[in-house]
Each structure stands twice: as structure tokens, then as C-alpha cells.
Computed example of a mutant assay.
Amino acid sequence: MPVTFSALTGHTDTVASVSIGPSGTLIATAGYDRSMRLWDVSDLAHPVQTAAFSGFTDSAYTIAPAPDGRRVAIGAGTIRLLELDPERVARQICGLADPKITPAEWGTYFPGVPYAPPCP
């Protein structure tokens, strides 16, 4: 039975690098449009773009997912290591957020909204 492939669209300039993650279902692309994109290709007929990172100061020339699949390294002028797990990213951001928002500050910025800070 033939396999149908779909095009991965989204970059606005030449794609300089393509890399497949360790699971075989993640494809990372980097391009001259100064962006990096991640794709879930577990269904080759219907790939899904799961993330896009842009704003690099130079074209993205190379990309490589880490063997554990949790990070990706991208060469775009400098080498950057990007965390892919949203929960880990949230924990890192909350770890840096200091001081935590107080109930009084919450009331000032979110009047009428019950106090529910995003970081514990």
C-alpha cells in the first residue's frame, strides 16, 4: 500500500536544515527566514506543526533534537538550546518569577478576578 506524504509548509524562505527526532515522529526544520519549526509526523498524511520559534538574529542553518527528545539545539548565528516540554518551561519561568504576585497586586491588575496566580 503506498504511503501518502504531505508538504510541511510554513517557512517563508529556504529551509536550510531538517532533522528527525529520536522517536521518529518529530521533525525539526530551520531556515533562512530566521525561524525553527517542529512537526509531529506520526501520521505522514497529516503532519501537524506543533511549535514555531522565530526572531533569531541570523538565519537558522542547522538544527538537532537532543537524544532524549526534550530539547533542540539550533545554530542561528549562535547556538541556542531550546526546551520543548511546556511543563518544564513553565516550571523554569515560575522559578525565575520573583517576587510572586500577592493577592493585593492581583486585585490591582485583575480586579474582580479570583486570586489564582499562575506560579505556586
Rank of each mutant, 00 (worst) to 15 (best):
I74V: 15
S19R: 05
A90N: 13
P120K: 00
V72L: 13
T62P: 08
M36S: 12
G31R: 00
I74Y: 04
I63W: 00
P103I: 07
V72T: 12
F110N: 07
P2A: 01
I101Q: 00
A52H: 06
A64S: 15
L82F: 05
A7L: 15
P114W: 04
L82G: 03
Q92D: 07
R88W: 07
P120M: 01
H11A: 06
A97W: 14
F5D: 06
F53S: 02
F56Q: 04
A30G: 14
G24H: 02
T12D: 11
Y109T: 02
L81M: 15
Y109V: 03
D68Q: 06
V18C: 05
I63S: 00
A76E: 08
V89M: 10
A64W: 11
S35Q: 06
S23H: 11
D68W: 04
M1L: 06
F5R: 02
L82S: 05
V48P: 12
V3S: 13
D98H: 05
V48K: 14
M36E: 12
G112C: 02
D58L: 12
A28Q: 02
T78Y: 13
I63M: 10
V15S: 03
T9R: 09
T12S: 13
R37G: 01
G95E: 07
A64M: 14
P114Y: 04
V89N: 10
P67N: 10
R70T: 13
S35R: 04
T12Q: 09
I101T: 03
Y109M: 02
Q49V: 10
L81S: 14
D98Q: 02
I20Y: 15
D40K: 09
G75Y: 09
G24D: 03
T57M: 05
P22K: 10
V41C: 15
P99G: 05
V41G: 13
A16N: 05
S59T: 00
P111D: 01
F53Y: 14
R70F: 03
P114S: 07
P47Q: 00
I63R: 04
G77P: 08
H11C: 01
P65I: 13
T29L: 04
F5P: 07
I79D: 05
D13G: 03
G21Q: 00
P99D: 05
A16P: 09
R70W: 11
G77T: 07
Y109H: 12
S59R: 06
S54R: 10
G69D: 12
A30S: 07
D43W: 09
R88S: 03
A90F: 14
A90H: 15
P111Q: 05
W39G: 10
V48D: 11
A60S: 03
P118W: 05
S59I: 07
A52Q: 13
P99E: 04
R88D: 02
G75H: 02
I27Y: 10
G55W: 14
A97F: 14
T12L: 12
A52D: 01
A66Q: 08
V113M: 02
D85N: 08
